[in-house]
Design a binder for these strands. Structure first.
Lengths: 207, 207
DNA sequence: TTCGTCATGTAATGGGTTACATGATTAC
DNA sequence: GTAATCATGTAACCCATTACATGACGAA
């Protein structure tokens, strides 16, 4: 009945904010533009769209046989979903939230992806919340490791070490982002954490 | 009815292989010894244990009131689960599998955690399978990024860059592990990928 | 005309959590 | 005696996938 996913709802509203789309295209965007995340199946997406329409946040616009009615993709478009003003408002509300939900693993990615539409103080709170969440996790891992280190074999140990390093690395990343935001270079232009990297050649990254 | 989780089943069998335990302790172990992974709730664990008993892989041993019957933890032990020989056999079968399932995100972690009980050629196949899986993913990310780079804002771009770097980092980690295995230092002693790190003092974490 | 992609959906199932219910044991 | 932790379980729900069903369009 409800089908309230959180991440999916947020991502759909955010993507439709920019331009109306039909379900099939929406799903592709979830894999590419926002593509670092999981790809939702149609069995998830379409029912979700239905409920968003029922909530009054989207409208369905059917473009049945008229080829002139679908100039967007150049091809047939069956059901185009458009964000209503109520939906826009709701999305703004979601964007303004900076509570614990935004720090969780599943939510944080989408939240970050729409930072371009997010107020700066909210961005700061989300980043800092995320960081302290990860630092707590790190401390728990360290404590647990200290207690059980002797009883673990090499592979288990290596796995834990690598896991902790991954978290530590994300903390460092967040630190850079927070610093950039603090310096005021994080609005919309001037890519955050720019250190002369080249996306096509990511050598010498760690070590 | 079935409640066949894959990861949980594998982890439970593997943990019980070392010593019999009751459910509560089993769950703690899943968070600590194997703790890099998700923590399963009791609502998942107990039904799972029931089905494993029904399969004949575990036996329930109730130690009702006798304090002498529970020398393991020094305290009351209600239902102790013990691996049967059939269960042991089944676990060995699972350990020997090196198919695509073992390369997926959810399975790989547990598989790696039990590498100490895994044959060397199986370890190699799993590691290499995992690596090529990640390299495919990386290529898809690169292709998608090349197609959509111009249309993306700074934050989305930064998110993708960080995501790709994470995957690249894991590939490098796998490369080290594979090299170590190949050199023959990966059996049980001689910790893999040892580069003079010290687990107890992971300073230089932040900046 | 057949194949690949576009496009939309539904029913069954899977895998897991939350909230709840219960009660024993230990420590204070 | 009361709070925390140990210990076991169940029912209701949640989120999402899989498999299936349907069909239109474009290109070979």
């Amino acid at each position: 009945m409800s089908r309230r996913s959180g991440v999916l709802e947020f991502a759909v509203l955010g993507l439709l904010r920019e331009s109306p789309m039909h379900g099939y295209e929406l799903r592709k965007r979830l894999n590419t533009s926002l593509g670092v995340f999981r790809a939702f199946s149609y069995g998830t997406l379409y029912p979700c769209l239905k409920t968003l329409v029922a909530q009054g946040w989207l409208t369905e616009e059917t473009a049945p046989d008229d080829p002139l009615a679908a100039p967007l993709a150049g091809r047939r478009a069956k059901i185009v979903y458009r964000l209503t003003s109520a939906g826009k408002e709701h999305f703004e509300d979601l964007l303004a939230q900076s509570g614990p939900d935004a720090w969780e693993d599943e939510q944080f990615g989408v939240r970050f992806a729409f930072f371009g539409h997010t107020e700066r103080d909210v961005r700061m709170r989300v980043l800092e919340g995320r960081r302290s969440r990860l630092e707590e996790r790190l401390e728990r891992m360290r404590a647990s490791l200290a207690r059980t280190r002797e009883r673990l074999d090499d592979y288990t140990l290596e796995l834990q070490r690598h896991g902790m390093e991954s978290v530590e690395r994300e903390v460092r990343w967040l630190n850079e982002l927070i610093e950039t935001e603090r310096a005021g270079r994080g609005r919309a232009k001037g890519r955050p954490a720019d250190q002369g990297r080249d996306d096509t050649d990511p050598t010498d990254t760690t070590t």
